[in-house]
Design a protein around this nucleic acid. Structure first.
Length: 797
RNA sequence: GGGCUCGUAGAUCAGCGGUAGAUCAUCCCCCUGGCACGGGGAAGGCCGCGGGUUCAAAUCCCGCCGAGUCCA
């Protein structure tokens, strides 16, 4: 991905590539590996490699080998880069060492390694480059998707004379050997090529640049086809984010050179070429994303425009800080800002280290992870616990021997870790909570409060010590376990139903099965509609009613993948050579959880809620079996309670609620009006208000016990009459409003402040209108009595 | 997984502790033979939801919900 800027320019960089390779496993004699002896090693490998090249008609004299020490993934060894005419065509890695803290060889990655008794040859070839080399086209792009390039050049309307075509061809050939790291290098390289061809640099640029963009467009399209075809959903996190970035870059490039075909068509050309079956979904995803991008841009444009106008008024350039903010929070590229700003005649202070400034905003906040390996060590000496819950998932009782009991002081309630030789208790894992239950000897019974898996050992956390060496009878809390099993099987069913309704791209992004409900996060590119929820619920329950068998089967990993594909790993990729496959009717998944035997046992599935947990991920919450019944009953009770309050039947609740809400709003408005009228009546009637003369202006000090709104209205009405208003209320503590007409030299904020202090509060506001108050309602009269004096003081200043 | 931004009238947004606003759209009136424009007016707001701070919260703080964006 770091070469993304090179795509299209050098003629050889592609964003996605297909890696070919072959391996040989050599094992020293006397080891007990399946393979023993040497298959082939360095010399033979190079010989095979050259034979391979020869078949392509390569002049072996032009092959260059560069040997270097390689390390990665915990292994190391010598490696050869095979280069033909400046192009790296293959890498041959010879792994002979493994990471070992006590190893005698220290390599350049800072780790120590020691020799292994296996030696592995691992070769790799980029398919695209071989295709290119064998085709002899000017660039790799014309070799791997020629019709796409043709479509694009035609769409953009590029036509070359023979002479021009020759220049482009030669330039492409030369640039293929370049490794360009930044923009300066591109220009330097271009000058070099122009010199070599005897062509003016500007002319070369004019000829080549549109083509470079076309190559990039074709390649970005292909990358997107790979990503979306493989089921990646654009999002603001993870690989989904990469997909979004590629798409937006593609959109900018396509608009830049004026490709008239819509993006989903470009991606579809590549998706078809790559043989994807889910092309309709891919197109839909692209269209949705393009629309989102368009909205983001429109939003950004408005934002930049108002910003540009603001800085235009001040006559200063837009500062770098604003640029960083625009990019980081709103996704607006600096060049977009410059473009819009220049239309408003504003400069932009674009810093050279722009992306460094962005990075600065992201530093820190790195969450550190504390690994508690102490637990692990405590149990490593114990033998693997035999897991009975896989043998018969419906059995809830078993007998076992206590192998070890470790007292814990750091946990409240669960004071002992008990390890048995075998157990029926399911430890927390795969999104399924731990079983609860009891362990009993003849003398005592202890509660199992939690069960965890530590390495190969199942640890039961209990509130008592059953005694090491004792035989115990274990009893699982049946109700709890059954709920988990129903929810677990329901999860497979809902996932399958969601796939049928929403599309083949649906992948599990996480799941949690609880006692009262369960949830499944799936990757999806838009919110799930109500209709889709209904459809998923119906399909899920159809599968429940079909009462299909739920079977488990242990299969060799390779065999399982061959038979069912990689989609079995919805819940993550398990360890070990054997995988446990759970077949739920038409759905097959690798899963370590406990399940019911027939889908009918799930009882019923009720979808409770859907939410967008993040962009590109939708969370489905649901309940199964008795939990589903309980959930429905809860909802019904709420509806019944609501209907009861409204005094109507449940069926009438929606329209009644709407009517009430409308009426409530209308009444609020009417009250507002009446208050206004009341205030005016009071002000003009002058009831119980004390009128004070203030150097020719009259001021009214009045008490009326109402809310703030009434005070304001009354004060405003008095000001209309040209009077200074001081209005007080003791309805809720003590509150004041002071309003002053234009041209009267009284500071309302000041007056309110002084009044409010007398009731133990504060207040303030602009000079012509202020409000305030305090908790001491008793002191209101006293404060109002002092108002005339305060007003005079104010005038005196 | 982490950071940042935004939720205010039907739409786009301003206000960022002290009386909820602008523009467009809507409706009415005026201008004109009619339309575009122009002029005048009206209607339209749980200021996303819930807590907290404060005399006072659209505004500050916390939580939730929703939208967006950048980085790994």
């Amino acid at each position: 991905m770091q070469d993304i800027d090179n795509v299209g320019k050098t003629g050889r960089h592609t964003m996605a590539f297909e890696m070919m390779g072959h391996h040989a496993f050599n094992a020293d004699e006397g080891t007990d590996y399946a393979y023993e002896g040497e298959v082939y090693w360095k010399e033979e490998c190079v010989a095979y490699c050259e034979g391979f090249f020869e078949r392509f008609g390569v002049d072996l004299e032009e092959l260059v080998y560069i040997e270097y020490p390689w390390c990665g993934g915990g292994n190391a060894g010598p490696a050869l880069e095979v280069i033909y005419r400046g192009l790296e065509l293959a890498t041959l890695v010879f792994m002979s060492m493994e990471r070992d803290p006590d190893g005698e060889y220290e390599l350049h990655d800072g780790n120590s390694y020691s020799l292994m008794d296996r030696r592995i040859v691992d070769t790799g070839y980029g398919l695209e480059r071989w295709t290119w080399m064998s085709q002899g086209t000017p660039t790799v792009y014309e070799a791997i998707y020629p019709e796409m390039i043709d479509t694009l050049t035609e769409s953009v309307g590029i036509e070359h004379t023979e002479e021009e075509a020759a220049i482009v061809h030669d330039a492409a050939r030369l640039s293929g050997t370049l490794d360009i790291d930044d923009v300066d290098d591109v220009e330097a390289a271009r000058a070099e090529i122009a010199g070599e061809l005897g062509v003016d640099v500007d002319r070369l640029r004019a000829l080549v640049e549109p083509l470079e963009d076309i190559y990039a467009i074709a390649d970005h399209s292909r990358t997107l086809a790979y990503m979306l075809g493989d089921g990646i959903v654009p999002s603001n996190v993870g690989t989904g984010y990469l997909a979004r970035m590629v798409l937006r870059r593609l959109k900018r490039l396509a608009d830049g050179v004026g490709v008239d075909a819509p993006l989903d068509e470009l991606v579809d050309i590549q998706a078809e070429r790559l043989g994807y079956q889910n092309r309709d979904t891919v197109r839909e995803v692209v269209r949705t994303e393009v629309e989102k991008y368009r909205e983001t841009l429109a939003r950004g444009e408005r934002r930049v425009e108002s910003l540009a106008e603001e800085y235009a008024r001040e006559g200063v350039p837009i500062p770098a800080g604003e640029l960083v903010e625009l990019y980081d929070s709103h996704g607006i590229q600096p060049d977009t800002v410059e473009e819009i700003a220049s239309e408003h005649g504003v400069d932009v202070a674009a810093p050279d280290d722009f992306y460094a400034l962005v990075a600065d905003r992201h530093e820190g906040g790195q969450a550190e992870e504390t690994v508690d390996s102490e637990d692990e060590r405590r149990f490593t000496d114990l033998p693997e616990t035999d897991r009975l819950y896989y043998e018969d998932q419906s059995r809830m009782e078993f007998e076992a021997m206590v192998l070890a009991v470790i007292e814990r002081e750091d946990r409240e309630g669960a004071d002992y870790d008990v390890v048995l030789d075998q157990t029926m208790f399911y430890p927390e894992g795969g999104g399924q909570p731990a079983d609860h239950g009891t362990l009993s000897t003849d003398d005592l019974t202890v509660d199992v409060l939690d069960v965890q898996q530590v390495g190969d050992v199942v640890v039961h956390r209990t509130d008592g010590d059953p005694g090491t060496g004792e035989f115990v009878r274990g009893t699982i809390d049946r109700e709890r376990r059954m709920r988990h099993m129903r929810h677990h099987t329901a999860t497979h069913i809902v996932g399958h139903a969601a796939r049928q309704v929403l599309g083949e791209h649906i992948r599990q992004a996480g799941a949690q099965k609880g006692t009262d409900s369960a949830r499944l996060d799936v990757q999806h590119y838009e919110s799930v509609t109500e209709e889709e929820v209904t459809a998923i619920e119906r399909r899920a329950n159809n599968l429940v009613m079909a009462d299909e068998r739920v079977t488990q089967e242990w299969l060799d990993r390779n065999e399982a993948e061959k038979r069912h594909g990689f989609d079995i790993y919805q819940g993550g990729i398990p360890e070990g050579e054997q995988v446990r496959l759970i077949q739920t009717g038409p759905d097959t998944q690798a899963c370590g959880g406990t399940h019911v035997s027939y889908t009918g046992e799930v009882g019923t599935i009720k979808l409770l809620n859907t939410e967008r947990v993040q962009d590109g991920v939708v969370r489905l919450s649901y309940a199964a079996g008795e939990a589903a019944i309980e959930a429905v009953q809860r909802t019904e009770r709420r509806l019944a309670a609501t209907a009861d309050v409204l005094d109507v039947s449940p069926a009438e609740v929606p329209e009644t609620a709407e009517r009430f809400f409308e009426e409530w709003k209308a009444r609020g408005k009417r009250i507002e009006q009446l208050k206004e009228e009341l205030a005016q009546a009071r002000a003009s009637g002058g009831d119980d208000g004390e009128e004070v003369d203030l150097d020719g202006t009259s001021a009214v000090v009045q008490r009326l016990d109402g809310d703030m709104e009434q005070l304001r209205a009354t004060a405003n009405a008095l000001v209309e009459e040209g009077k200074v208003a001081v209005v007080g209320s003791a309805a809720d503590g003590a509150q004041f409003v002071v309003a002053v007409p234009d041209g009267v030299a009284v500071d309302a904020g000041d007056v309110v402040g002084k009044l409010a202090r007398r009731v133990g509060g504060g207040g303030g506001g602009p000079p012509e209108f202020a409000q305030g108050g305090g908790p001491d309602g008793e002191a209101l009269e006293e404060a109002l009595a002092e108002a005339p004096e305060i007003l005079h003081e104010g005038l005196g200043d």
